[in-house]
């Protein structure tokens, strides 16, 4: 178990930097992780982060397809908001485990 301090709070993460305890997450922490990824969070980012967190809390699987069902943004915008590997980056910033889905 590794610990990292974000925004003055020490959190538990796995070897890839994903939170092992999503309840330690705060919006300020998200902004700091995003900065490491080169992303400045906007309201739109936070809206999709909230969507991902609530899906995770409800035990629903996260897939790239589920972003289209979010009613917030479409998949294309998702790729623009979190360039590169969007689902991996967004879940890391959202303080939830890395999705194990292939879709």
């Amino acid at each position: 178990m590794t610990q990292i301090t974000y925004a003055g709070v020490t959190v538990d993460v796995n070897e890839e930097g994903y939170f092992t305890n999503p309840s330690q997450w705060t919006r300020d922490i998200a902004a700091e992780i995003a900065k490491e990824e080169g992303i400045v969070l906007t309201d739109q980012h936070y809206a999709i982060i909230d969507f991902l967190r609530s899906r995770h809390n409800n035990g629903e699987a996260l897939s790239i397809r589920s972003i289209n069902h979010s009613g917030i943004i479409d998949v294309k915008t998702f790729y623009q908001l979190f360039p590169g590997a969007p689902l991996k980056k967004a879940t890391k910033i959202a303080g939830i485990p890395k999705p194990s889905s292939c879709i």
Binding site: S63, I64, R65, S66, D74, V75, K76, F78, Y79, I103
Partner: peptide, 18 residues
């Protein structure tokens, strides 16, 4: 049921990602 989309939707996801 496993959230695997139909072919056209799958292609759209790929296009959305560039």
């Amino acid at each position: 049921k496993l959230d695997i989309p139909p072919v056209s939707e799958f292609l759209e996801l790929i296009k959305a990602g560039g």
